[in-house]
Design a protein around this nucleic acid. Sequence first.
DNA 1: TGTGATATGTACTAATTGGTTAATTAGGAG
DNA 2: CTCCTAATTAACCAATTAGTACATATCACA
Lengths: 231, 231
Amino acid sequence: MREATELAKSKETKPAVRDPEGVRRDILTVAMEEFSQNGLSGARIDEIAARTKTSKRMIYYYFGDKEGLYQRVLEEAYGKVRGGEHDLELDGLDPIAALDKLCRFTFDHHRANPAFIRMVMVENIHHGRHMQMSKTIRDLNQPAIEELEKVLRRGQASGLFREGVTSLELHWQISALSFFNVSNSATFSLIFGGDLFTDEGQHRLSRHVAEMVLRYVLRPDHLGSIPTGMQ
Amino acid sequence: MREATELAKSKETKPAVRDPEGVRRDILTVAMEEFSQNGLSGARIDEIAARTKTSKRMIYYYFGDKEGLYQRVLEEAYGKVRGGEHDLELDGLDPIAALDKLCRFTFDHHRANPAFIRMVMVENIHHGRHMQMSKTIRDLNQPAIEELEKVLRRGQASGLFREGVTSLELHWQISALSFFNVSNSATFSLIFGGDLFTDEGQHRLSRHVAEMVLRYVLRPDHLGSIPTGMQ
DNA sequence: TGTGATATGTACTAATTGGTTAATTAGGAG
DNA sequence: CTCCTAATTAACCAATTAGTACATATCACA
């Protein structure tokens, strides 16, 4: 398949007159911003079109209707965020360091991707209706738990972690803390002040989230080995 | 002030012909359902009006415009949910039991008020723009932390809880776990299955959230005193 | 170089939607 | 009973918005 998108790469200096894939990407990028900012019904097709290099007509040409576009944007959001966990190389670390690293990574990763968070918020308002039809998204997320599962098993096998903790619940807890931190920062900081949301406050929270998770899984006699995170 | 709303109560058997306060309530109730279900821009004034005993005109008469109605609904949501913490009588319990009770209550309370959760989700999508202008809401939430602060102080004074834990962060953590449980149940259960969201799964989660918080604040030598929650 | 399929620009539309105008009725104070 | 104000009804409107019809240009390939 030709890739006029990657302009410099193609030998024959493809003039960007007609670049279907580029148009698609352009639309998706702008649409993600609009949908994540205004929600499904809040976003305006005309506004998306206006901010694109293309026209409204092309949106319908490529994505059918508003919901079709929204659904592709949602998949795009999940696709772009998931998978980062793989590059962590947790296997080389001892279970405690690995779990600590995974927690912090998850926290920071969520924080670095507010558009994704907002898309998920929007989709939850819609009861996950559009995700149901997307097999892609469901598959994309299994790896997230598998990494955790491996660490957990190692920790339990070595006697560092207590039994009775499941990777599913643990993932739920880590996700909750990391997600809420972004999703509810507006209301939370309006009510309780913005101290937790300064760079410094966020760094502290990141450490404490990891600490909370570790204290939850560690056997009491190993609580001394919790990393300080002050490197 | 007369209360034609409470029909049976008034001696003179006020015929409900003209009941301003009742009309207001009617509108607010329906609007809360619509806004929490469809968001600010997703909700339709016509639909709200249709489901009301009154007419669209009255919505504008009492609330000015759509945003005005939304804002009052938001305040209503906060008002209805907050304040429940006060009746817990935590002072009569030892710090561990008190914190345990507070965590479980918060978790269950969030779960019992999905409309409130959804309103907060929606408001966060809008960056808390409408909350900013409502002094009411900000004031309403201070008590939530004060109860926690008292328990925390008692626990630290008696040597049961470790130092270095602030009530603000702790409240953030408890809120995160309790909120996410409701806000993201749709997407989470679609991806990872619904096991956590059965009655049984939720009961387990409730216990584990409390356990997580307790393990976080307890000094290691008191970890043995964590309640099982099996009563 | 011709040809069918893919891609794009312009202009339009039908329906929805937030909001209003103006006239009417009930309630309460004097 | 009167009269002013608050509450209510019914019809109406202007603007927005998702979606389309149709003509046209470009491409891949024979």
